[in-house]
Nucleic acid binder design. Structure first.
Lengths: 218, 218
DNA sequence: CGTTCAGATGAACGACGTTCATATACCGGC
DNA sequence: GCCGGTATATGAACGTCGTTCATCTGAACG
């Protein structure tokens, strides 16, 4: 009953707001919650309240909470993708081809560490029923923006291999390994802040250098 | 009201079990739940029921749910530590010093992938209030067994550096990077089972080889 | 104007973590 | 042997969560 005046029904052109628009509006509200109140506040009731809808209405657009979070993740992915693209563009003219990969990696790590709540939504949201889950049958549909982000990394790796800078290998596997290593660093720093970590800069540099060296030819 | 006959009050010798024993009993019940019903079932009420106590009684031994989970994590850590020790012992006589590290790494990865629920308790339990958390001020006390596990990895790295197999570096940083990379692989495979991953064996081998090569001298 | 029907709602359900007044069982002092 | 004090455990309760459902509403169509 809170703000029905604005939210209940847009009087004039009522059905001009399609279901897809409503969906977007809900996702936008959810994103605002993550940004302003953090990961823990990402709740169906909270999202509904901020979107000016009842909690039950969310289930008209998303079958359950995990699907909503998947949509939010896809939305938040754009921030990460933009940061990585910007880093690549910045390193565009660098003569060392490795610098591009290094830029992509550090951009990923920096973004994750400066946006921990968003990172948790995107990459650390647990999947229900891990034990009985079948790989290859996604419980939640994959996010297109996320696929684009991984594709960018994979393309970067493929280029390095084609140039002979990296030793011959399947770009897919190498990209997955690099992604996993970076994700491990970010997620561990987020999940275990009490561990006596070495300085972050040193940690990031050590891991990025080791991976570059490890995949390099020669 | 279910099984009060057996659980409500142990009539005969109630106080012969000291507080520490009670704590252990609760942790044992929690571990059984993780093993038999999975991570999602690790609930205060469920643990209490299996331990034959009321839910409120848990708060006599643990200030909150996260502290209970920390104790469970320390308990589960022994399984991982044993697996890693066994792998090291198996590779004891190998002439290649890198083989020991390789054994430790693959033991870690294998254990995590074959015990996803336990792995989630140990390494993927989210910390409350990430946003405002101060690194260095642990929200939950560190698990001694966990420290021992990391120390084993660090010692392995230090030995490789001392032997000149690895290039000179601080063992602490290198061990952290290796741990992070391995954790990333395990946690991503657990959290994103829908992603079109390369075969696990190939993934594990690629990452382990790249890290070994990346930190090696020469 | 009357009917139909998708869209939205409030209330409710069961489960969760956590708290609290209450009751019980033990233990030292008489 | 009894008694009061104290630690220990409890059931009930609070507020919140995800989710479901009968009900209502208001636009669209004849």
């Amino acid at each position: 009953m809170a703000r029905t005046a604005a939210g209940r029904r847009p009087a004039a052109k009522p059905r001009r707001r399609s279901a897809a628009d409503r969906r977007r509006q809900v996702v936008a509200a959810a994103r605002r919650i993550v940004l302003r109140e953090g990961f823990e506040a990402l709740t169906m009731r909270r999202v509904a309240a901020l979107a000016g809808v009842s909690a039950a209405a969310l289930y008209l657009y998303f079958p359950d909470r995990l699907s909503l979070m998947a949509a939010v993740a896809d939305d938040l992915f754009e921030g990460l993708l933009a940061a990585m693209r910007a880093a690549v563009a910045r390193a565009e003219g660098d003569p060392d081809p490795r610098a591009r990969l290094h830029a992509v990696m550090t951009a990923y790590l920096d973004w994750g560490l400066t946006h921990p709540d968003e990172y948790r939504v995107i990459f650390m949201t647990p999947i229900t029923g891990v034990a009985g889950h079948q790989p290859g049958e996604p419980g939640v549909p994959a996010a297109p923006t996320g696929q684009a982000t991984f594709a960018a990394l994979q393309a970067e790796v493929a280029r390095l291999i084609a140039l002979g800078v990296f030793r011959p290998a399947e770009p897919q596997v190498v990209a997955e390994a690099i992604w996993a290593a970076g994700h491990g660093l970010v997620s561990l720093l987020i999940t275990k802040p009490g561990f006596p970590w070495s300085p972050r800069d040193r940690l990031i540099g050590t891991l990025a250098d080791a991976l570059c060296r490890g995949f390099s030819a020669g």
